[in-house]
């Protein structure tokens, strides 16, 4: 890991759609250190070691919903206020999210553009220093 890499904010990215994961990695990599997971199962264990600055979670995943995963992540000591950006597939999820206790988190409706994702991250954790 280069000096530069270490200074970038860390993003945990969870989506069961592997191609979309790759695309988002491409969008984020210039400014963030990205850790991608296509299986929500592994995330909670790894997160403690990674200490991310923000998590991006797909809502609809077959193994576990993004909401459930968010709850599990925030249940861990030190992660109670971890900023989370939800990626939702449908407009109706939006209402659902609004009723959820997600403290300061954000949702984006698919299809998601590069700019929308970057803007959401800036909004959550502030601008990252250019690489």
């Amino acid at each position: 890991m280069s000096e530069n890499e270490a200074s970038k904010p860390k993003v945990v990215l969870v989506d069961d759609e592997k191609d979309f994961l790759k695309l988002m990695e491409n969008w984020l990599r210039p400014q963030y250190e990205v850790f991608s997971f296509s299986d929500p199962e592994a995330v909670a264990d790894r997160v403690r070691a990674l200490v991310p600055d923000v998590a991006i979670l797909d809502v609809h995943m077959p193994a576990e919903s993004g909401f459930a995963l968010c709850k599990r992540l925030r249940a861990q000591p030190g992660f109670e206020t971890l900023p989370v950006v939800f990626l939702t597939g449908s407009k109706t999820d939006e209402d659902f999210v609004q009723h959820l206790e997600t403290g300061g988190s954000r949702y984006l409706t698919k299809p998601i553009s590069r700019q929308a994702l970057l803007d959401a991250l800036v909004e959550q954790i502030g601008p990252s220093r250019p690489a």
């Binding site: 759609e17 979309f20 695309l23 969008w27 299809p111």
Partner: peptide, 23 residues
């Protein structure tokens, strides 16, 4: 139509990365 939209937006996103020279 709904199911077409997501894969399509991924294809478009990938092509955009190439077209805008980010890759």
């Amino acid at each position: 139509t709904h199911d077409l939209r997501n894969p399509l937006s991924i294809i478009k996103g990938a092509v955009l990365e190439l077209d805008e020279g980010r890759a």
